[in-house]
Write a protein that binds this DNA or RNA. Structure first.
Lengths: 346, 346
DNA sequence: TTGAAAGCGCTAACAA
DNA sequence: TTGTTAGCGCTTTCAA
């Protein structure tokens, strides 16, 4: 390892103390212009670059936030991640990525007291395997922002869209098109499936509001929100004696998987079966047909998450947990209204 | 910030020196069993967790590798990233993500002398904005592994598939189906477009081998390999007086964009136009119709990249640059052979 | 405004 | 096998 230029060497060359160099480099305090110039010259001459590690050790922080997601190759997360990285970088923070595969032990570890210290100053976390209680057990000294649907117990922030309202809106869209046998793919009737349950609730509420009966047997549970599960559920639905004429999918990936099966069976979307998704990932806009969906404001979710976690990091005293809502909108495409009729709605 | 338990405190409680605790914690050297047990007990009792930052500073390394990609929401990269993160973690390394948007200055900065020191020990880099020469100018003391098509100048490793052979294979597949007016979407006839140019070369070689003339006007250049560019190029091709009967797309995203336009124009895939992509992203397998593609061995690329960068980090002396080839295979799906006939080929 | 010096918590060379 | 101790490079308190 090549010996690096240190602060001390710069100080020596400039004929000042290392304290002064530190001040100059960080733009701190009051340094007279001539001193500043002298130091800067020495910095240039030696090609000095601050050692981030040393700085962080001295400051007791790592300058990094961790972003923890279950799966990186889920388009929704990678799209979100882009915004998070951008926002964090703007504040001088680096982003460490972790992928848990939904493993509860791994997830627990990351937010527990037992995690390795100073690797990251805060966490933006999209939990999959942890339920309410496990989340509440997190190290209270760790600034934590949760994405998706987990109600805060007051020790961390939570940001997400209004899942019930959004799902209601998607379902009402299908009902308003005259569909009456609606299926829902993605329910998760167990403690870690909160997000899914909220969507199911919205699904039911829409039926109530329109005075239509929910067909319970058409509400299909799936362990994940991916294409494979969507395809499997769709196959099951089509094998039913009385299959649905519309499907509300709890993610766009599920919708794409479902549409894949519909195409394979020779059924037309939306003529035979209308399909609506959730997340507004780019794939959905380019699928055949393009898929209607609920579009959460990802840019806002990303920037707000970063903003909040940095706020918590900066705060000396633990901040009370906050519930933050990002806006969403219904995006109508061909998978529900057919060619030519597709447009956008609020 | 809560005062943390330090090595020294553990040493005190255990009645040994900090040196010994360090040895125990890191599993170094020879420590007698009773001593070890005593130390471990103290560790447990105090809830001691090593401070990664301090360790790294003392060791002069950061324990992190940076993975630099142009765009995170490109499925190919997020799929690759999964493997990289997994492999790195297995070796005790964390992964720092950076996204350059293809900005040459940003890219240059990351591998130059001027980068911030010790933030990462090595880089796995997929350059977009930098040409051969700019890459050659990287800080030679920085362990560097390049993904994609950039020939190493001997100071870094490069790993990728054989683009020419793969493209030839894809093109031959189209020709062997009897198609004769083949288009290619994704050429990039400028210094940073090496990968694209190699694919164009394979495209031409296939024509030669089969004794078919290349239709130059059907080779379309695009700045990026995404859906939008694929859609735009396809529109252009369809507006030609004599449109193609098959399209070789330089990425699956391009293929999906192209197929989107074909569907919108009421053309059938593959009956009217056969389409083949490149990368084998998951979307391609679930599109309608599923898209034939060149499938690089992503898992192997990921693990090899990590392996090589760690090797370079570990080596005291700079290792000579190596060219590494990952295997690929042709995956035949409905977008070229139609329903029912799709299968896999080596 | 600037200097001297004590840490930040850990590793590792040197000694015992 | 274990202890002593001098760094790693920077920040920051205290004093001047």
């Amino acid at each position: 390892m090549r010996r690096d230029v240190t602060l001390r060497e710069v100080a020596q060359l400039a004929g000042v103390s290392s304290r002064t160099v530190s001040n100059v480099v960080n733009g701190y305090a009051n340094v007279t212009e001539p001193t500043r110039a002298r130091v800067m010259r020495a910095v240039e001459q030696l090609g000095y670059r601050p050692n981030v590690l040393a700085r962080n050790l001295a400051q007791g922080r790592s300058g990094q936030i961790a972003v923890v997601v279950p799966y990186l190759d889920t388009p929704y997360f990678s799209e979100l991640l882009q915004g998070i990285i951008r926002a964090a970088r703007m504040q001088g923070y680096n982003v460490l990525i972790d992928q848990t595969d939904g493993d509860p032990d791994h997830e627990r570890m990351l937010i527990s007291h037992g995690r390795s210290r100073l690797l990251f100053d805060g966490v933006i976390f999209s939990p999959l395997g942890l339920d309410q209680q496990a989340l509440a057990d997190h190290d209270p000294s760790l600034p934590l922002v949760i994405l998706g649907e987990r109600v805060s117990q007051g020790t961390f922030d939570h940001i997400g869209i209004d899942d019930v309202a959004a799902s209601r809106q998607a379902t009402e869209h299908l009902l308003d098109l005259g569909r009456r046998r609606l299926a829902a793919i993605g329910d998760q009737p167990y403690p870690t499936g909160e997000a899914a349950q909220l969507r199911t609730r919205g699904f039911c509420e829409a039926h109530e509001r329109r005075g239509v009966t929910v067909h319970e047997e058409l509400v299909i549970a799936t362990p994940r929100f991916n294409r494979v599960d969507g395809a499997g559920a769709m196959r099951h639905l089509l094998d039913l004696p009385d299959p649905p004429d519309a499907v509300f999918c709890y993610s766009d990936l599920v919708a794409l998987g479902a549409m894949h099966v519909l195409a394979a069976r020779g059924l037309r979307v939306p003529e035979d079966v209308a399909v609506i998704g959730y997340d507004d990932i780019e794939d959905g806009a380019y699928s055949n047909p393009p898929v209607s969906t609920i579009s959460p404001d990802k840019e806002m979710i990303a920037t707000t998450a970063v903003e909040r976690v940095l706020l918590r990091i900066a705060s000396r005293t633990p901040l009370p947990g906050r519930e933050l809502r990002a806006p969403h909108r219904l995006v109508v495409r061909e998978s529900t209204v057919g060619r030519g009729a597709a447009s956008r709605a609020g």
